[in-house]
């Protein structure tokens, strides 16, 4: 199941774990990323809390936790090479995996069609 937030994150949900990243639209808006800071595994985060920080040449931006949960894995590859987020935002440029406290809460997020309408 693929879901989106109005904060321009995508979630690929398999069972009770969501892989989270930022959308191609967000990556394009941010421009060339030069730094990514990710949460450590085991961190419990509420929906809306700051989960990660990305920095372009020009500015820093927060990436918010899309649902309540616990971080189970972070993508070291984008820390080592932030440009992966620009080149493959919805693939190799994923940010972290989140074990959802309540997987059913994902139903309230946007589907792909609704997200595309949001950024149109």
């Amino acid at each position: 199941m693929l879901k989106f937030t109005d904060e321009h994150e995508w979630l690929k949900i398999e069972g009770d774990v969501a892989t989270v990243g930022i959308t191609a639209h967000a990556a394009e808006q941010l421009g060339d990323l030069v730094f990514v800071e990710l949460p450590e595994s085991g961190t419990a985060l509420d929906k809306g809390a700051t989960a990660a920080t990305v920095e372009s040449v020009k500015a820093a931006s927060d990436v918010y936790c899309p649902l309540d949960g616990e971080i189970v894995e972070s993508n070291q590859a984008i820390v080592d090479d932030p440009s992966l987020v620009n080149s493959d935002p919805q693939g190799a440029g994923w940010f972290f995996k989140l074990k959802l406290s309540d997987p059913s809460a994902a139903n309230a997020l946007l589907d792909e069609a609704a997200y595309k309408e949001l950024i149109a």
Binding site: G31, D32, V34, S56, V57, K58
Partner: peptide, 12 residues
């Protein structure tokens, strides 16, 4: 213009 399609890094 803050940037063109090439982006800040390439422009710099």
């Amino acid at each position: 213009p803050v940037q063109y399609p090439a982006g800040v890094m390439k422009e710099h």
